[in-house]
Amino acid sequence: MNHTYTYHVVEGNARSVGKKEAQLLKQTKPDNIPFFTSLFEGKKERFTEAEALFRMNETWCPGLNDEIEGFAEELGVSPESVVWYTATIPRSSNCSQFAILPDRSAAGTVICGRSYEWSLEDELTLRTIRIKGRYAHTGFSVFVFGRLDGLNEAGLWVSMTAGNPGPNLPQNRGFRFWALVRTILDRAATVKEAVEIASSFPLAFEVTLLTADKSGHAALIEKGPDYQSIARADSGVLFSTNHFTLPGVRERQPEIHRHSQLRSQYLAGALARGGLSSESAERILRAPFPDGLVTHYFSEWFGTLWSMYADLSTGALKVCFGPPDLTGNEYRAFSPSDPAGTQSFPVEIPEATAPAGTWVLIPR
């Protein structure tokens, strides 16, 4: 089946960027406007909480309200009706990520990679945003304003994997992970700054964040609503799939999915040797499951929608739209400095059924 990915580059003040995002939606996906401007899952009670939601957004995601107001104005709706304020998702994504630090890379630089697995119910939009007072960044979006991953102009990488092997998400008052990823990309230039933002951020999710900077520092942050554990590294490698591994949080998960264990074992082996390069990262990302990362099980919320990697010294992302194990799905370069405009990329995405045992829960 053919699907179209979009790459959208906008710049300006926050309000004008929001208006441009709405204009893109009207031009490319007008049928999706009701989704982005309606109460998600019928949460009418959130209208009565609008003022509190705006305050919370401004405290933890500074400037984002201005973007949303511009978006709403362009679409002729009230800001509180924009789906960002009421969004939740039915289950966690199934992804993989890694960071190769200078002592393990052939060029002595930091190389990061990630594979994003989800269903075809996705925006399929890569965005570069340049707003005065924030770091320009490139990353995939969710609910327009959130980010699933990205690289900013300071050379800071952020990506995520879901940490909860079950379908139930926390319902405490807080943000989903995409708000945290966006805030880090906007505000942090170093791993130290990213960790500071993440540590106090009110989260209603269980997530593993991977962040790295071009100076050779990295951190794995396993975080839930009221707990977290952080592994910092200046050498070696860091990686995660879809279960917690750090002391203090791994004990919360007595069982994990077999697919997460298999991908974790694959990454451990693939990253074990030294002299790794950007080409090594691409080979790691192209290998098919169960002996690699790439999957085609989109109807089971476990298909590779994209993968990407970056040598942080170059300031550019290499992105493959669709599963990278398919002939014709190549990696393309994108950067926070790309010129403003919009591009489309048609991609063939085949469907398959996960092999028996993929979803089995196994004891740790």
Score class of each variant (00 low, 15 high):
V319H: 08
T304L: 11
A287P: 04
P288R: 12
T304Y: 08
G315S: 02
M308T: 07
F298Y: 15
L312I: 05
S299G: 04
E282N: 00
P290E: 07
R283M: 14
H296F: 08
S313Y: 00
S280T: 09
Y309S: 01
Y297F: 15
E300I: 04
S313N: 05
W301K: 04
D291L: 06
T295M: 14
L317S: 00
H296P: 00
F302W: 12
R286I: 10
D311S: 04
G292Q: 03
M308F: 11
L317W: 10
A287E: 15
F298I: 01
R283L: 15
Y309W: 10
D291P: 06
S277L: 09
S280H: 13
A316N: 07
K318I: 03
T295P: 01
A310D: 03
L305M: 12
Y297N: 04
S299V: 09
P290K: 00
K318Q: 15
F298H: 10
H296E: 11
L305T: 04
V319E: 08
G315Y: 12
L285P: 09
D311R: 02
A316V: 05
M308L: 14
L305D: 06
V319Y: 06
T304A: 09
S278V: 09
D291Q: 11
G315N: 01
R283N: 11
G292R: 01
V319W: 06
S299C: 07
S277K: 05
L293H: 03
H296L: 14
S277F: 08
D311Y: 09
R286N: 02
M308V: 04
F302A: 10
Y297C: 06
K318M: 13
G315F: 12
L293D: 12
V319N: 07
T295H: 02
T314S: 15
G292T: 02
S278F: 06
T314E: 14
S313T: 02
D291S: 11
S277I: 02
L293M: 10
S299N: 14
G303V: 13
L305C: 13
G292W: 05
F298R: 00
F298N: 00
T304V: 11
M308I: 03
T304I: 09
T295G: 11
A287Y: 07
R286T: 07
S278R: 05
V294I: 11
L305E: 10
V294L: 10
L293K: 01
E282S: 03
R283W: 12
I284H: 04
R286G: 01
V294E: 04
S277R: 05
E279K: 09
H296C: 05
R283P: 00
S278E: 15
R286W: 13
I284S: 01
E300L: 10
E279F: 13
F289Q: 02
G315E: 08
H296Q: 07
P290W: 00
G303M: 14
L317V: 03
M308Y: 09
S278L: 12
I284A: 03
L285H: 07
A287V: 11
R283H: 12
F289V: 02
T314L: 14
P288F: 14
Y297A: 06
W306Y: 15
A281H: 04
L312K: 01
K318G: 00
T295C: 15
R286K: 15
V294T: 08
S299E: 15
F298M: 06
L305W: 03
V319D: 12
A310K: 01
